[in-house]
Amino acid sequence: MAGYLFRRFVTSLVVVLGISMVAFAMLHLISSSPGRAVLGLHASPKAVAAFNKANGYDDPIVIQYWHYLLQLLHGNLGYSYKLNQPVTSVLGENVLRSLYLSGVSLVLAILIAIPLGIYQAVRRNHLGDYIVTSGAFTLYSMPSFFLGLLLIQAFALSLKIFPPEASQSVSVIGVIEDPRAMFLPILNLVAIQVAGYSQYMRSSALDGLGQDYIRLARAKGLSQKAVLTGHLLRNSILPMITLIGLSVPALLAGNLLIETLFNYPGLGLMFYNALQNEDYPILLSYTLIAGVLTVAGNFIADVAITIADPRVRLS
């Protein structure tokens, strides 16, 4: 088992290295001459060249990548000339607020989706299943921000229960203390995630219900509840672990849209603003981090599966 995880870890490192190459390559292709971007169109070519030389932007590409990699290893993600701030500090300002939003919505989504999926599988092709499936299908076919628009229309503009804008508090504590303002963005994220997870859980549970060991559990005389909690749950959650590990990109995309829609100052909004400013160091650093997080998510899921599944653990 340890050997397996070690090999998975090495593979993950290889992938991370690949991601850094892609991020670097894109940075290089899109803004190969940062001097021009920083100094503006009116700067003399000489000044641009001097700037590029001073910052090592005229070295051979491999050397530049090597420097880039070394900087990364030292935790230096580059410098945002637009904001006049190191990228790390820009990220640092926003990371906790985003973490709160994503974390709360992910946990809520899992807690809702698992029982919902099992319920659907057990009541397969009954009314409840149809209703949930239709709802999930509609949500799934909807751009995530559109649900947000509907929520704003209903709860903020028509009913006026919740504000249309998320908490603007600078500190996370402030955000946590303002659940009313966070209700709609969190509800929005939870709803889209539940739509995906519950359908996956449904098919996983359906798969489980068709297994011979469920029949044997029933043949022992166990009640439906005991069969579901004692035999079905653990086995059908196993594939969910992998799915959740794979969901980092979707989570980040969700953040980007929802934070933009609700004007919530997190990493997503930061990314949106950087897009408007064409602030490539921030954009690509964030992309790099997103890639690393995705790899990490997969790896953590693998570890979790290894712990949860005796077939993997003991082989």
């Binding site: 297994q211 043949a219 653990r234």
Partner: peptide
Amino acid sequence: MIFQDSSSSLNPT
């Protein structure tokens, strides 16, 4: 009752 396929009839976890 006992079934045919013991590899799938026992709960793997």
